[in-house]
Design a binder for these strands. Structure first.
Lengths: 200, 200
DNA sequence: TGTTAAATCGAGACAGTCTCAATATCTTTT
DNA sequence: AAAAGATATTGAGACTGTCTCGATTTAACA
């Protein structure tokens, strides 16, 4: 639950702030149990508020997701920058990808929203998605410069890969997602090289 | 457009048969342009039929998909069996995976349905999905016995992989899907081996 | 306490899913 | 060729959901 709030130009009225927080709480709960397609009518009901109020605060579903996840996504981007110091560029990339998958699995249906939002400039989630994609690009670039990752892989590929794996995890199990991720990340190693017998 | 029809215990009435075919045609068109979430009300409208008629013929959306895709899916399974004779087990697996991705990309949203249906025994699509999964298992098994594919990969992994890639393709582009597929399939090679410099 | 800007309310317009009793249509039989 | 019987179609209706906007309420501040 973020404490940042909705970018208030001036301080919000007390009732507005209260409703904003309640809506966020209930939306988080609803998304957690029903996925990102949960009924917004229901969210408003659970927050004890008319649905018009929900739409006043969050004009779109993506706005709700941004409010719910924006901070965490920026933290994920930050984590990528920290990992730039990790001794093994390939390991760093794998660790970060794993974290990104975990993030994209927060709610059922989230991977789809994240994928849509990165393309759609008008989405409230767009900026957060971009920051994640850009962060991935740094890690990927370092791995490529170190010669431990295929040159033809792009940041967009990495973003799609992470979200695809998260999507698969939503449909089946976290264990399968982890296995898929390890396959795909191994597949990013350059062709014509000997791969370490232990996948680390 | 299948000519198999709806498993008629006895011959269908002429009007029923006509409506069945029309519904299938329009559903195919609607799914093609709107994805698998297209409005069924609209499908019925376009077919010039009341929506109750649609539900009489196809009790669920998945029933419609089975009628539309069942034959093609069984053909895909058949293709796997043909490929068992291919000289390169790894190449055979790759070729088949590519065909499976192409199939799962027929409609936007299809990958999700295919993933759901393989888990859900009550789905009308379940049997067709199983036959695809089982077919993949044969190809995968041969590649593993030949020592060109990781032992820890399962048929479920392959199924999930193919559908994840198809999903990514839906969200972005066929080109990116192809790249993701090639990464993942390379990643299926056994650890501790030298990989060919050209991905074939 | 009165004023005012801000926020909330909730009915209403619309679209979609799915069901089922009434009705219509085809097929078969005589 | 008409009636009987089986089969299929109809479309209104009960839901659930999205989203908007004019009327109303409420908090903030002098």
């Amino acid at each position: 639950m973020s404490t940042a709030g909705p970018a208030p130009r001036r301080r919000m009225r007390a009732d507005a702030r209260r409703n904003y927080e309640r809506l966020l709480t209930e939306a988080g709960a609803a998304f957690a149990e029903r996925g990102t397609d949960a009924s917004l009518e229901d969210v408003a009901r659970r927050a004890g508020v008319a649905n018009g109020t929900l739409y006043a605060h969050f004009p779109t579903r993506q706005a709700l997701l941004e409010a719910l996840l924006g901070d965490r996504m920026r933290a994920l981007a930050g984590r990528a920058h920290e990992l730039m110091d990790h001794p093994s560029p390939h390991e760093a990339l794998l660790l970060w990808a794993r974290a990104a998958v975990a993030h994209a699995t927060a709610y059922r249906g989230l991977a789809t929203s994240l994928m849509r939002a990165v393309e759609d400039e008008t989405s409230e989630l767009h900026a957060a998605c971009r920051s994640v994609l850009d962060a991935g690009e740094h890690l990927l670039g370092r791995a490529q410069r170190a010669g431990v990752t295929r040159e033809d892989a792009t940041a967009a590929d990495l973003y799609a890969l992470v979200n695809s794996v998260a999507w698969a995890g939503e449909q089946t199990s976290a264990a399968q997602a982890e296995r898929l991720l390890s396959f795909a990340m191994e597949g990013l190693r350059p062709l014509g090289t000997v791969r370490p017998a232990r996948g680390r």
